[in-house]
Design a protein around this nucleic acid. Structure first.
Ligand SMILES: [Zn+2]
Ligand SMILES: [Zn+2]
Ligand SMILES: [Zn+2]
Ligand SMILES: [Zn+2]
Lengths: 143, 143
DNA sequence: CTTATAAGTGAAAAACATTTTCAATTAAGT
DNA sequence: ACTTAATTGAAAATGTTTTTCACTTATAAG
């Protein structure tokens, strides 16, 4: 079950952050969006409810939510990053290179590989990034 | 066996591109570097042999080599992308978040997962990005 | 309900990475 | 040598993210 805006706000507060109107507005938009959104797109949506907010604050709030593990961030080489409400726990992405839509999936089974690489290279592996790219159902026609 | 500068230059030429002194200089640096390098870093190195070259040309040449599949490009969320001579075929990376060093590995076994995702989501999957992050041997002390 | 204050805000500027423009140069074929 | 389309590089444009700093405000203490 997706966390509510109230829940997220309260977690923020518990961590010693102030609950400002701007932060509530950003949280509302994130909670009510299914898609992964770039800061600029989120900014547009947030402004509908809170016209005076600054883009900087959106950036700051998103980073903060991300650091608390409440939302998930995706880097899309070159393009701007996107954020979305974190589904429960570890997951990965499937990105459409045409329209940018992102689908999530949760299983990856990389432990064995990770273990072996760690031994071979001496790296202390702390995480992984797994992402498939391709074309979504809508973008398979033409071009 | 890594391709030689001569080999790369000749491939470039075969594809109908001109063989300029600038391109030769970029190719030389790429061939003689083991690390993944950002355009700016490559630019610095290229300037030692060819002081008058412009950063733009380095960008253009790298993109061109990448499009021909001769070098491999890595996006590092947020930071600048890096390029390196393509080891033969498909491979992945292990990145140190402290110093940025990159190690390559070649096996990933993602076909089964890919097949299943493709069916479940309707995506036509064209590639994947797999990357482990952690700390290399040198960067494991402290912090 | 004040008051104090540390946290938060936002406009503007800075910092970057990358791309575009365009006049001048040059590799390569005839 | 001549021609010409490809290439170059300085500068400007673009686009994203970060920094700065004077001003505002949430929150907690009195
Ligand atoms: Zn699509
Ligand atoms: Zn995973
Ligand atoms: Zn390191
Ligand atoms: Zn692979």
């Amino acid at each position: 079950m997706r966390p509510s805006a109230k829940k997220i706000a309260s977690l923020l507060s518990q961590k010693g952050h102030k609950l400002t109107a701007q932060r509530r507005a950003v949280i509302d938009v994130v909670v009510n969006s299914r898609e992964h959104l770039a800061p600029a797109a989120l900014y547009e949506r947030v402004r509908r409810a809170h016209p005076a907010i600054g883009l900087v604050t959106v950036y700051r709030t998103l980073e903060m939510l991300h650091e608390l593990g409440l939302i998930c961030r995706v880097h899309r080489g070159g393009k701007s990053r996107t954020y979305t409400l974190a589904p429960s726990g570890h997951h990965h992405h499937l990105v459409c290179t045409e329209c940018g839509i992102v689908a999530d999936f949760t299983d990856c089974d990389l432990e064995v590989l990770q273990q072996r690489l760690s031994q071979e290279t001496g790296f202390k592996i702390e995480g992984h990034l797994l992402q498939f790219v391709g074309h979504c159902r809508n973008c398979q026609g033409g071009t």
